[in-house]
């Protein structure tokens, strides 16, 4: 499935590219590890809750049930009511979707941007490399949460602003890893051979270089997704989201934490959801990392 396999055969004695392990192969092989299985299971459950939850919620998100923080038995609901007197379970089932969607979209943009910048920098090996990476240093001087906060304060708490802020702060971190992984590949003979064959730079970057760094990039993508989920739910927790009373896990934790001592579900459910979701993506990332490292060892690349 990788482009290197379909590349024309090179002359004998030239360092033939080891076939890059495709992303699907790596995923399947990583599932042999228990940690990846547990991680995938956790992530799948939480993604299902976030996506399917709104369809099965017993009540609407703004449907008044009983007075605020009334118990399950008093309000006739499963987990009682929240700070507004709405059904905790229903708002929990609705509350993951926006976090998950924003996290996935912003991480995807950031990873693609970072991979492109990292590959270009690694392949350029000249002043462009220096300029690009120093520029990445400048962006990295702003912690993700701070840049997101400042962006929100300047433009307003719109979803598009949050997505852009997360993508922009994800890209330099990914670019560093992509450049680091691509640098040794650039030095190898088969890249010189493809240049001699007259392949376009775009083909070399994305057809030849990219398949050879897919392993580390998948690890980085899951890691970044974990961080994005954390930052986005933290922003909501800090009260910086488009609608301060929306059904959103971060907001639910913040608004319901005052009742932790006597009516804990309103804060506890979203806390557990975010914890298990980030644990899941974290475990998947580690599983892929171990599998990729194992494949490298088999080949003697290390």
């Amino acid at each position: 499935m990788s482009a290197t396999e379909s590349a024309p055969a090179l002359a004998e004695g030239v360092d033939t590219p080891t076939p890059a392990v495709g992303s699907s192969t790596l995923l399947v092989r990583s599932l042999r590890l228990w940690r990846t299985r547990i991680g995938a299971f956790l992530a799948l459950i939480l993604v299902l809750i976030a996506l399917v939850g709104p369809l099965v919620a017993p009540h609407g998100v703004t449907e008044f049930i009983n007075k605020p923080f009334s118990s399950a038995s008093a309000s006739g609901t499963v987990f009682g009511t929240d700070y507004l007197g709405y059904d905790v379970l229903s708002r929990f089932l609705y509350g993951g979707r926006s976090i998950l969607v924003i996290a996935i979209v912003s991480t995807a943009i950031g990873v693609v941007l970072g991979v492109v910048i990292g590959l270009v920098a690694a392949y350029a090996r000249n002043a462009l490399d220096d300029v690009l990476m120093r520029l990445m240093d400048v962006i990295m001087a702003f912690p993700q949460i701070m840049l997101a906060l400042v962006a929100v304060s300047l433009v307003g708490a719109k979803n598009s602003v949050i997505i852009l802020a997360i993508a922009l702060t994800t890209a330099p971190r990914v670019a560093r890893v992509a450049r680091g992984a691509a640098q040794p590949v650039v030095e190898r003979d088969f890249i010189g051979a493809t240049e001699a064959m007259g392949l376009s730079r775009v083909r070399i970057l994305f057809g030849e270089l990219l398949p050879n760094i897919l392993g580390p990039m998948m690890v980085e993508a899951t890691l970044r997704l974990t961080y994005s989920i954390a930052v986005i739910s933290a922003l909501a927790f800090l009260g910086l989201s488009a609608n301060p009373d929306a059904a959103n896990w971060g907001i639910m934790i913040q608004k319901n934490q005052g009742a932790l001592a006597y009516e804990p579900w309103g804060a506890l459910l979203p806390i557990l959801a975010i914890a298990l979701l980030t644990m899941g993506t974290g475990l998947i990332g580690d599983g892929i990392a171990r599998t990729a490292a194992g494949i490298d060892r088999e080949r003697g690349d290390e």
């Binding site: 930052v231 933290a234 932790l260 001592a261 506890l268 644990m279 974290g282 580690d286």
Partner: peptide, 23 residues
């Protein structure tokens, strides 16, 4: 450590509050 690394700080913080000062 792998699990702790994945948890957002505010989740850790609220879990500590639940564990050590409320519930």
């Amino acid at each position: 450590m792998l699990v702790l690394a994945a948890l957002p700080e505010f989740v850790v913080a609220v879990l500590l509050v639940i564990l050590l000062s409320t519930n």
